[in-house]
């Protein structure tokens, strides 16, 4: 057994898979927002994996108070600004370089495509 597996076992919080099980609907809703299509045979595994990690994330609650301040910026820097001075834009051929099938200088998305 790897040492860190033992570490998980020995650590002060415990992971109980399934305690906060996500629903299939929830996973599908999230997939829709994330623009990912989840196949039916993948849903179960995803629910399990995501639920595990979300349960695990609850470990945060055991050490952080609600009232504590929220992180904003590591180095406390502010006001990083550009001046309002125009620089030459890129050549259009460069901008379009990584997508074949442009037309008249536009990116084009065809209505539909049958493969």
């Amino acid at each position: 057994m790897h040492g860190y597996r033992a570490a998980i076992k020995r650590s002060s919080y415990k992971i109980e898979v399934g305690e906060r099980m996500l629903t299939k609907e929830e996973v599908l809703r999230i997939a829709k927002i994330a623009k990912l299509s989840v196949k039916d045979d993948e849903v179960e595994q995803l629910i399990k994996d995501m639920s595990t990690i979300i349960d695990y994330a609850d470990a945060i609650n055991s050490v952080v108070e609600d009232s504590e301040l929220e992180f904003d910026d590591i180095n406390n820097i502010a006001n990083a600004f550009n001046e309002d001075i125009v620089l030459e834009s890129y050549d259009r051929d460069e901008i379009l370089k990584n997508r074949e099938g442009g037309e008249k200088g536009y990116f084009v998305v065809r209505k539909s495509l049958r493969g």
Binding site: I54, I60, E68, E70, F71
Partner: peptide
């Protein structure tokens, strides 16, 4: 529950 909490913890760890 998640993101904000995680950021709170981040602040406190710093």
């Amino acid at each position: 529950a998640y993101y904000k909490k995680a950021q709170n913890l981040r602040y406190s760890i710093i």
